[in-house]
Amino acid sequence: MSDELAAQLSTVTQKLGQLKEELKKVILGQDGVLEQMLITLLCGGHALLEGVPGTAKTLAVRALAMTLSCQAKRIQFTPDLMPSDILGTNVFNLAANTFELRKGPLFTDLLLADEINRAPAKTQSALLEAMSERHATIDGVRHPLSPVFTVFATQNPIEFEGTYPLPEAQQDRFLLKIKVNYPAEESERAILEAVHRGAPPDRLDPGTLVPLFTVGDLQRLQAALTRVRIEPGILSYVLKIVRATRENEAILVGAGPRGSIFLLTSSKARALLQGRDFVTPDDVLAMVGPVLGHRMTLSAESEIEGAAAEDIMKSILEKLEVPR
């Protein structure tokens, strides 16, 4: 590696470290979630956040947008939400005698799609198409979205009444499924103490966080990902893990090639976040759950037995040798 490249990567990792510290000022006890959200951004993917209400999902997205000096918008998905509500629509301007595009909330950098499973399939697919194509089609005309357009969709894991669960094919479009759990006792105490001192519990006042990155910086970071190296043994390890999901009896449909690609890129992004320009098996293992968990369809027997995708994945990993 040249000295210039090493210096560049050192700056990148230093800035990412600062970013993580800045975010931790307002998001307490969710370090893993923050790391996975940053990985999503570095990979240029989208994430599905799954967690019970009140675990700082919305706040995390807002804080991220603030530190990246990005524009962020939020859509609360409801059963009556129409595709035009998120994409936008052409409105006739009587004075100019022409149609004018009134852009929907999709035209932003970071989008928080709250409770995505509450909207009907038609609206979900309009969003998912925009996610994969990075453009929106309104009245037959294609409109490009922000180059760093990232969706953080949320869904509640316990309440399914009146919801439209995302089909497997649509879930596959999300780079990561981030599980947002309750914070640890110490972190929750720190949150209470902060609120007691006067910090707003779920609001983020302007100036609370220092913007450290611009959209251009983020794009450069995404480009830096290609310079993260991966030893051939680790590449084979990624391949073995994904292929093992297709051969396991407990799994009806394993992860596809998109799963392998995402596991590789997210492992590289994690390495970068850890301040390394090379991937280790620990990076791969850390990303297996968030990348592959939602890409597997369990067999009927496993579902009846109440097996979780995490447990099956664990048994797969126990049989695979770590490259050394």
Binding site: T280, P281, D282, L317, K319, E321, V322, R324
Partner: peptide
């Protein structure tokens, strides 16, 4: 164990 990483 062969399935453990060095950091484990």
């Amino acid at each position: 164990r062969r399935n453990r990483t060095n950091w484990m």
